[in-house]
Computed example of a mutant assay.
Amino acid sequence: MSIEFQVPDMTCGHCVKTITGAVNQAAPGATVTVDLPSHRVTVAGAGEADKIEAAIREAGYQPARV
Rank of each mutant, 00 (worst) to 15 (best):
M1Q: 13
M1I: 09
M1N: 13
S2I: 14
I3T: 15
I3C: 08
I3S: 11
E4V: 12
F5R: 08
Q6P: 04
Q6W: 15
Q6V: 15
Q6I: 15
Q6H: 15
V7K: 00
V7Y: 03
P8E: 14
P8H: 12
D9V: 12
M10E: 07
M10H: 05
M10R: 06
M10T: 08
T11Q: 12
T11S: 12
T11D: 13
T11V: 12
C12K: 14
C12F: 13
G13T: 13
G13N: 15
H14W: 12
H14V: 06
C15H: 11
C15W: 10
C15V: 11
T18A: 15
T18M: 12
I19G: 06
I19E: 09
I19F: 07
T20Q: 11
G21Y: 03
V23H: 08
N24K: 11
N24D: 13
Q25C: 05
Q25V: 06
Q25G: 10
P28V: 07
P28I: 06
G29V: 00
A30W: 02
A30M: 04
T31C: 00
T31L: 02
T31D: 06
T31S: 04
V32G: 03
V32L: 05
V32Y: 04
T33W: 01
T33F: 02
V34K: 02
V34P: 02
V34I: 13
D35I: 03
D35C: 00
L36G: 08
P37V: 05
P37Y: 05
P37R: 07
S38W: 11
S38Y: 10
H39A: 12
H39L: 09
R40A: 11
R40H: 15
T42R: 07
V43K: 02
V43T: 04
A44F: 00
A44Q: 13
A44E: 15
G45W: 01
G45I: 02
G45R: 05
G45H: 04
G45D: 06
G45V: 03
A46N: 00
G47L: 00
E48L: 11
E48I: 07
A49S: 14
A49N: 05
D50T: 12
D50C: 04
D50V: 06
D50K: 10
K51N: 02
E53A: 10
E53M: 05
E53L: 01
A55P: 09
A55I: 04
A55M: 07
A55F: 04
I56T: 03
I56K: 00
R57C: 09
E58P: 05
A59W: 08
G60W: 11
G60R: 08
Y61R: 01
Q62H: 14
P63S: 03
P63N: 03
P63R: 03
P63F: 03
A64F: 07
V66E: 08
